[in-house]
Amino acid sequence: MTAPIFTVCAASPAVTTLLGTGPTRLYPHGEAPEGTAKPYVVWQVVSGSPINYLNCVPDTDRYGLQVDVYADTASSAEAVWMALRKAIAQQAYITGFGIDARDKDTHNYRKGFDVAWLVSL
């Protein structure tokens, strides 16, 4: 099992207003189809570990995720970033803010954050 980022975000009307439905443009890293309409979001697991106990086996895993928004404008990237942040923060912990820049080659705006997500087994 992994962090339920897609399920949580796809259930948020604020997120789907910006990222659509059928499909919701929220993809595991490397799986956004070529030519995907912007804005879109990719996420990836960058760390993880079980929550260990001395007297029993782990019943919870911790996933560290990196979430990145790609958009045509800074304001669009910001709107998606904020909608995702609000949806995810109800289920997990926002632990840091990442890239906030414009790509020199594609001219896409990119804005991201990191998440710690505890998943019960």
Rank of each mutant, 00 (worst) to 15 (best):
W43N: 02
W43S: 00
W43V: 01
W43P: 00
Q44I: 06
V46S: 09
G48L: 02
S49W: 11
S49H: 11
P50C: 08
N52M: 13
Y53I: 14
L54Y: 12
N55A: 11
V57Y: 14
T60S: 15
T60I: 13
T60W: 15
D61C: 07
R62Y: 10
Y63N: 06
Y63H: 05
G64D: 14
G64I: 07
L65I: 00
L65N: 00
Q66V: 03
Q66H: 10
V69Q: 01
A71Y: 00
A71T: 02
D72V: 01
S75R: 06
S76I: 05
S76K: 10
E78G: 09
E78K: 13
A79K: 08
A79Y: 07
A79Q: 11
W81K: 08
W81P: 05
M82L: 11
M82W: 12
L84G: 09
L84T: 09
K86C: 14
K86S: 10
I88Y: 09
I88L: 13
A89F: 15
Q91F: 14
Q91D: 12
A92N: 08
I94Q: 05
T95E: 01
T95L: 01
G96Q: 03
G98M: 02
G98L: 02
G98T: 03
I99P: 07
D100F: 03
R102H: 06
R102W: 00
D103L: 05
D103R: 01
K104S: 10
D105K: 04
N108M: 06
R110H: 03
G112V: 00
D114W: 03
W117Q: 10
W117T: 12
